[in-house]
């Protein structure tokens, strides 16, 4: 399965909906998308992971890279994820302390801190 990406602007946030598998082969596409958004001036990103079937450390690396980029512009990167098997990967790498993880896009879009 490949990676699917779509973006939508909600207020001052840009929601990136990700579907499929994020691994060493597909992660560069996600990286390109995040870099492009930041280069275009979108500094408050919400990455919706509800459609993600598989995530590995390469994907985590891309998300951390995205976070570094938006923070350089005083922006934010929030995640939406309810899937236990994906959340587990964030937990064992300690990244739950790094990313704000929300249960819905609405919650992430309206979050302020």
């Amino acid at each position: 399965m490949d990676l699917s990406l779509s973006t939508e602007t909600v207020g001052d946030r840009t929601v990136v909906r990700v579907g499929g598998e994020i691994d060493v082969y597909t992660a560069p596409k996600l990286r390109e998308q995040l870099v492009e958004l930041v280069n275009d001036g979108s500094y408050h990103l919400v990455v919706d992971m509800e459609g993600v079937d598989f995530l590995d450390s390469t994907g985590l690396g891309v998300l951390v890279g995205g976070l570094k980029r938006v923070r350089a512009h005083e922006g934010s990167l929030r995640l939406v994820c309810n899937q236990e098997r994906i959340l587990k990967i964030f937990r064992i790498t300690g990244l739950t302390k790094v990313f704000p993880i929300h249960t819905s896009v609405d919650e992430a879009v309206s979050a302020t801190d």
């Binding site: 590995d56 450390s57 390469t58 690396g61 790498t93």
Partner: peptide, 11 residues
Amino acid sequence: ADDESRMGLAV
């Protein structure tokens, strides 16, 4: 790339 490699082993 280095971060990813370290995270891979951490996972």
